[in-house]
Design a protein around this nucleic acid. Structure first.
Lengths: 114, 114
DNA sequence: ACATCAATTAGATGTTTAGCTAAACGTCAT
DNA sequence: ATGACGTTTAGCTAAACATCTAATTGATGT
């Protein structure tokens, strides 16, 4: 799961996943969408493979990549799901619930200093 | 939004956010949860601030961090929402819809070679 | 057998990142 | 003034990352 977030930390890799969202694509077709060399793209693919975010299928000379949507789902929703996402936003937690006192700073009370 | 994913790529920072999920905490209290030096923690906080994932409030000598849940939501759900998450999984796209031909490899047909 | 094409590997380079210590700095509280 | 809290800076190391060019592998086609 750490690997997934690592993989998602690069914009190029995120866009690869978005391209793969629509359809499986070959390595070459994917590479055509980015202004970097093929070996560089290959390295990005390796990171995505490492994170188990894509499936690979070799057909003839081509290598076809497929998005593993469930892995992306599990990682992202699993993380964000630990937060109370979607729950009603707590308007303003009563400061009595805070683990520290929000002491009104004394300087705000120095009323004697006119 | 790139900054958010960058911030999330480090396990320490993800756990800071998880700690902040429950309650606002001071820098010191947060730092107590991790076996790293204060300057290192301060750098992590700076990355989280940079990504706008936390709010900072100085009260007296303490610095209180609060999770900005909406920013986390917008980034993560915004990204994962671009995928058809939650939609019925497309069982198996007909290969006629693929942008490339899945040519049955000739070597699979070499039936003459008995 | 040989040339060709697709993709990865190998090796090199430069940048970024996470971490440390030590010191300095600002703000506040006492 | 002194101490506490947190941040910042400087200076450093080590590891990871992104990128390149060049070489290699593997399958196809002739």
């Amino acid at each position: 799961m750490n690997a997934v977030f690592k993989a998602l930390s690069d914009p190029t890799r995120r866009r690869v996943l978005e391209l793969l969202r629509d359809r499986p694509m070959t390595a070459g077709d994917l590479a055509d969408h980015f202004p970097v060399s093929k070996p560089t793209m290959s390295a990005h693919f390796a990171v995505l493979r490492e994170a188990d975010l894509v499936d690979v299928q070799k057909i003839g000379k081509a290598v076809i990549y497929r998005l593993k949507l469930s892995v992306l789902e599990d990682a992202l929703l699993g993380f964000v799901g630990a937060f109370n996402v979607g729950a009603a936003p707590r308007p303003a937690p009563p400061e009595s619930a805070l683990p520290f006192a929000i002491k009104t700073p004394p300087f705000a009370i120095k009323k004697g200093a006119t």
